[in-house]
Amino acid sequence: MVTTILCTNLSHFQIDWQQKAVYCPQGKRSYLWKNNKNTYGKPVIDVEFRQRDRVLSELKLGKQAPGYKNAQKALNRFITELTRSV
């Protein structure tokens, strides 16, 4: 079962409760799903998307855009360099 979140700023995200995954408007799947509690002790679910996917989304390049593959390659190289230096 897939549920669409109906919040103002999250209206295009979908939740797949069985797979414990959230899908962004670009179709990218979250890689982290963690049951947690907020500061008031109410249950919440924390999800995260990969940094690469968030940056590519911010660039607003569709996969068919001329610069998408170059941006993706450059971003992958940058992330590789960052992880090597840590």
Rank of each mutant, 00 (worst) to 15 (best):
G27N: 13
I15Q: 14
P25S: 07
W33M: 12
H12G: 12
N35F: 00
R29L: 06
N9I: 01
L32P: 06
F13Y: 15
L10S: 05
K37T: 12
K20M: 09
Q26V: 08
H12Y: 01
K37H: 08
S11V: 02
C24M: 15
N35D: 06
G27F: 13
L6P: 02
S11Q: 08
N9Y: 02
G27R: 12
I15V: 13
G27S: 13
C7L: 02
C7Q: 04
L10Y: 04
Q18N: 12
A21K: 12
G27K: 15
L32C: 09
I15E: 09
H12T: 08
N9M: 01
D16M: 06
K37V: 11
N36S: 03
K34G: 04
S30P: 05
Q19V: 00
Q18R: 11
K28T: 06
D16K: 04
Y31E: 08
Q19N: 05
S30M: 00
L32D: 06
L10I: 01
L32K: 15
K28H: 12
Q26R: 13
Q18F: 10
K20H: 14
L32R: 10
L6R: 12
L10E: 02
G27C: 07
A21T: 13
R29P: 00
D16S: 11
N9L: 04
H12N: 10
C7H: 06
G27V: 15
K34V: 01
R29A: 00
S11E: 02
L10C: 11
V22E: 09
N9C: 03
L10G: 01
H12F: 05
Q26K: 15
W33A: 10
W17E: 09
V22N: 03
G27A: 14
N9W: 06
D16P: 11
N36G: 12
S30F: 01
C24R: 14
